[in-house]
Computed example of a mutant assay.
Amino acid sequence: MATVYQIKGMGCSGCVDSIQGELNKHPHIEATVSLDTRTLEVKTPNVPKEELQQILAKAGKYELL
C-alpha cells in the first residue's frame, strides 16, 4: 500500500528532478514524484515521514504536508 504526501514548494520539473535525485540516493525507498498533483507517492512500507522530510530538505526548500 502506497502513502501519498503533498509537497509544498514544488513548482517546476527542475524541482521534481531535484527531489527524485535525492530519493534515488536511498535505494531502500521506492517513491514517485508528480508535478501535476505536487505529490510524493511512497511505495515502500514503513518509511517515517521525518526521514522523507530530511531527504526533501537536501533537495531544496520543500516540505511534506
Rank of each mutant, 00 (worst) to 15 (best):
S34V: 03
T44H: 06
K49C: 09
L52D: 10
G9K: 13
G9V: 08
K25S: 09
V4G: 09
K49P: 12
I7R: 12
L64I: 03
G9I: 00
E41T: 15
S34G: 00
C12W: 11
Q6M: 07
E63K: 15
L52I: 05
K8Y: 08
K49W: 01
T3F: 08
D36I: 12
K58S: 07
Y62V: 07
H26T: 12
A59N: 04
I55E: 07
E63R: 15
Q54V: 10
I19T: 00
V47S: 00
I29V: 05
E51P: 00
E30S: 15
E22V: 01
K8C: 03
K25E: 13
T37W: 01
T44Q: 11
Q53V: 03
K43A: 00
L56E: 09
G11T: 05
M10L: 14
Q20Y: 00
R38D: 04
A2G: 01
K8L: 01
L40W: 02
Q20P: 02
K61N: 09
V4P: 09
E50I: 14
D17N: 15
E63L: 14
C12G: 13
Q20I: 05
A2D: 05
A31P: 10
S18N: 14
V16C: 10
C12A: 09
E51C: 07
L35F: 12
L56I: 11
Y5C: 08
A57L: 14
K25F: 02
T32D: 05
I55H: 11
E50T: 15
L64K: 13
Q54N: 08
E30Y: 11
T3E: 13
E22D: 11
N24E: 11
D17W: 15
K58P: 02
Q54R: 11
V42C: 04
A2L: 02
H28E: 14
I19W: 10
L35V: 04
L35Q: 12
H26I: 13
